[in-house]
Amino acid sequence: MEWVILLERWLHFLAGITWIGLLYYFNFVQVPALAAAAADTGGPGGAAITKYVAPRALLWFRWAAVVTWLAGAALLGSRFVPAMTLQGENAIIGLGAWLGTIMLLIVWGIIWPNQKKILGIKPATDEEKAKARRTALLASRTNLMLSIPMLFFMAASAHGAGLFLN
């Protein structure tokens, strides 16, 4: 049984690093790079990033989010309900789990549907694309913001739970 728990934790870390690593890539690298490419008149532009990089990054991003959540839920096991209902000491991992859950819903409910319009996977007018860009950016930034407390509570549940016990 301990092997199963270790494998679940390992998978949770691998998928989580893939998900959050790509979230940080989008926010710290790709979005500023595309803005710089658009401002660089006479430069090569950002079309290659949009065509070849972004769809692959988004594929790994959104499915890694699902695997991270499923592995995390499996890892919680019988603590899933006490964690999600913030009962006692389970509230520490529960807050991390809720933040992760909200982030997953933002990925699939807001970021991906808007990115489909931006990347041309779903037909959209220029006006709809501009609106989708703004919505997707703010949703991505929201997830970047939420990742900070999410990782704090994930770490605290394993390594600093005692700090919360009065």
Binding site: G88, E89, I92, R141, M145
Partner: peptide
């Protein structure tokens, strides 16, 4: 008022503030 999520720095500061708020909430629950 400018949206803090419009900049990376504003987003990170918002995340740190949210962490502090949630730590206070967690302390009151646990």
């Amino acid at each position: 008022m400018k949206n803090p999520l419009d900049s990376i720095l504003g987003t990170i500061i918002s995340g740190l503030v949210l962490t502090a708020v949630l730590v206070v909430i967690a302390n009151s629950i646990v």
